[in-house]
Design a protein around this nucleic acid. Sequence first.
DNA 1: TGAGTAAAAATGTGATCACAATTTTGTGAT
DNA 2: ATCACAAAATTGTGATCACATTTTTACTCA
Lengths: 231, 231
Amino acid sequence: MDKHSPISITLAQRDEAVTITRWVYDTLHNAVLLGQIPPGRALTIRELASLLIVSPMPVREALRQLSAEGALEIQGNRRVMVPKMTAMKFNELVEARIAIESHAAVRALPYINATIYQQLQAIDEQIDEAEANSDPENVTRLNQAFHRTIYTAHPHQVTQPLIESLWLQLGPFMRLSAESLDEYYQIDRHHEALTAIEKQDPLALQMAIAADIRDGCAFAKIPSKLQKLLN
Amino acid sequence: MDKHSPISITLAQRDEAVTITRWVYDTLHNAVLLGQIPPGRALTIRELASLLIVSPMPVREALRQLSAEGALEIQGNRRVMVPKMTAMKFNELVEARIAIESHAAVRALPYINATIYQQLQAIDEQIDEAEANSDPENVTRLNQAFHRTIYTAHPHQVTQPLIESLWLQLGPFMRLSAESLDEYYQIDRHHEALTAIEKQDPLALQMAIAADIRDGCAFAKIPSKLQKLLN
DNA sequence: TGAGTAAAAATGTGATCACAATTTTGTGAT
DNA sequence: ATCACAAAATTGTGATCACATTTTTACTCA
């Protein structure tokens, strides 16, 4: 059935009252974020359909949506795959994250009230816990939740979809970051961010967010890690 | 057939050797950018299919892609429409444009060689021409081409899809800007940008891009125009 | 005349089929 | 063994159909 390596995808929880297309989308979205689909591996509609035990139709729709979001790439051959990474592209993605997310954080700052602040503290504690348990998958997931909670505090926010797109494009390669977690000492940037929020200090928040993103992607500066990134 | 106002869509040029889905996408993409589809107007697959004289299938695919790009919005009812605008959202979109596009411009600056510089000059001249002819549609189109040429000079650029998404979201409402062109004196920000490029001055380019975007959206500060924006 | 409700029409989702184009496989010659 | 090339299998695209849900229309009652 498969000329290339077999892929093993974690099935998303199937919520009734939700369309099949949505479920397929969630499942593939997650698979891309977790790096379960090797970059460059050709994805066919029928293969995914039989893998997820659904008809080809919902897969078609999900693939098109994920492609529009930058999670997948449609080649000239009309073949769909997870885009391959290059060192230059990785760097641009990180710089784009810094530019957009620090902007989003500053914009959202005035809307971060006590309730949201407590949510952030709770997430931060969970991150410490996950780090103590060496649970890189949850560290990544909670880290995204931390950032998302900040940005979406703004009621008229428009950048979150763009940010999610960048996360999707970096996602497949962030597992390398998660694996390096304990190898290098990490300053607690989240704590810096929380302090900046407390003081309602835009510049400090901006710096904390930028530093947090840079720290999280610092592994790409390590030659051995960088090499794995590009394969 | 239509409970709401009838919509008149400019059909994109039909290039053979291109999928029907792609043609439908281009057509609707253009229609959204030109504000030919009233915000809030419910779009049904079958109506568009008969309007474009294609089967429902390519329309389905195009609608999903456009929704993923933020050009359209899928409501809870599963109804698709051009998102309605609010003053706050408009402001956020403009600020997001400034943040991302000035970042993209600075990143691309080192890659803008003589050839690209001449392309920019040529586009700028065309803009002057279109302005002299009071051709707001072409002014808008060429203005986008000017910006796109700068950003895509970077060979490993990753922000263009995000920027295009913002343009799509603002598009339906930019015709108000084009209509106000001759009403208010406009400083030639493109000339400032070209000078900054010539000097390879990142900060000056950033300022020029930011000012150009702000100028182009200044109409929203005029109460009467703002009112039309929200209807 | 206006509001509530039941019947009727329209809609999105999903399945299945046909077909042209692409990819893969199989075969033979060098 | 290696390459060229034709046959076979696979793939994406697009069309059509069925069905549950939603929306609209029509009608009744206050």
